[in-house]
Simulated scan of single mutants.
Amino acid sequence: MHYVTAKTILSPKNGMNLYRGCSHGCIYCDSRSERYNMDHDFEDIEVKENALELLKKELIKRPKAMIGTGSMTDPYIPAERHLQYVRKSLEMIYRYGFGFTCITKSDLVLRDLDLLEKVNEKAKAVVQMTLTTANDDLCRIIEPNVCPTSRRVEVLKELDDAGIPTVVWLCPILPYINDDFENIKAILDFCVEVNVKGIFCFNMGLTLRDKNRQYFYEKLDEHFPGLKERYINEFGDSYGVGSPNNDELMKYFKGRTADAGIMSDTYEILAYLREFPQKSVQSKLI
């Protein structure tokens, strides 16, 4: 872990990354890609030491909106347990009347349930959780350093019980690893059980670019001997690596979500995440 002084913290669309790099070890992570110009080891977490100061300045002057985090780095990496940058950011987001959404795989998000409830009462808080495989043993291989799927489902249930809306990322789906009907059905069963509001699924497959492709192939050799050669033969250097079961699985996905009343259209979910509600009753400042 190392510290840097950042120049900015919020993007024009109110996204923020308090950290760069991740220690969850997911074998498919696109954030390893060369295009993101990370000039340090991916597991050597970069901490923006002045992030909270920058965030306060931005919240004071920006119009009320949803603040998002997690698109590049899971905000609830283990280092967050003691650094508490996310929690301190949430305190400010609540104080200044903004909304909040994050993408995570970690049950550490429940540490901040009290603040998520306060933000949700005053504006809106949405937790987005990645689910890729229903089998915990497989999950521990492809996402080794974070809580398994069964625990994430428990987290989604606790959030729903607390009135916090949730969205699931059903991706990536790795050809010949977790792209079978039983896996997709089981995950969708979980989503229905815990009352998720929407599910992102762009297609059954994954993306591979320089650096994340090499890391992914190393892990295929380690855990799935012979599969790397199959990927190379079938997909070459393609950015998009689609499952041969895509059409069948996407048809099932669309039908199941429609029957359950779960949003599955990408633009509809994005619009929901960006929508900042006007609550009639405002909570007092902390």
Rank of each mutant, 00 (worst) to 15 (best):
M1G: 01
H2M: 14
V4N: 01
A6M: 05
L10G: 02
S11V: 06
N14S: 15
M16E: 00
N17S: 11
N17M: 12
Y19P: 03
G21N: 09
S23D: 08
Y28L: 03
Y28N: 03
D30C: 09
E34Q: 11
M38P: 01
D39E: 12
D41S: 05
D41I: 09
E43A: 12
I45L: 07
E46S: 11
L54N: 09
L54K: 08
L54F: 08
K56T: 13
K56P: 10
K57E: 04
K61G: 02
A65H: 04
I67Y: 05
G68C: 09
G68V: 06
G68H: 06
G70Q: 06
M72H: 11
M72C: 11
I77S: 00
H82D: 13
L83P: 01
L83S: 05
V86N: 09
K88V: 12
K88I: 14
L90C: 10
M92E: 09
R95P: 15
G97M: 08
F98E: 01
F98N: 03
T101H: 14
C102F: 00
T104V: 01
S106Q: 05
L108A: 02
D112G: 10
E117L: 11
V119N: 04
E121N: 06
A123V: 09
A125Q: 07
V126W: 08
V127W: 01
L131Q: 13
T133H: 02
A134P: 07
A134C: 08
D136A: 06
D137E: 11
L138F: 04
C139W: 12
C139T: 11
C139H: 15
R140D: 03
P144A: 07
V146N: 03
C147G: 08
S150C: 12
R151H: 11
R151A: 13
R152G: 02
R152L: 02
E154P: 08
V155K: 08
V155A: 04
E158Q: 13
D160F: 12
D160L: 14
D161S: 15
A162Q: 05
T166Y: 01
T166S: 04
I173Y: 00
L174M: 13
L174D: 03
P175K: 10
Y176D: 07
I177Y: 00
D180S: 09
F181T: 04
F181D: 06
N183H: 02
K185W: 04
E193I: 13
N195T: 13
N195E: 07
K197H: 09
K197W: 12
K197N: 10
G198R: 05
C201Q: 01
M204E: 03
M204Q: 07
M204K: 05
L206C: 04
D210Y: 00
N212H: 02
Q214K: 07
Y215V: 05
F216N: 01
F216H: 00
H223F: 11
F224D: 10
P225W: 06
G226L: 15
G226M: 12
F235K: 12
D237P: 05
V241M: 03
V241F: 03
V241L: 13
G242I: 13
P244N: 04
Y252A: 00
F253Q: 01
G255F: 08
R256C: 07
R256L: 01
A258S: 13
G261D: 08
S264D: 15
S264K: 14
E268T: 13
E268R: 14
I269M: 03
A271P: 11
A271W: 08
A271L: 15
E275L: 15
F276Q: 13
K279W: 02
K284M: 13
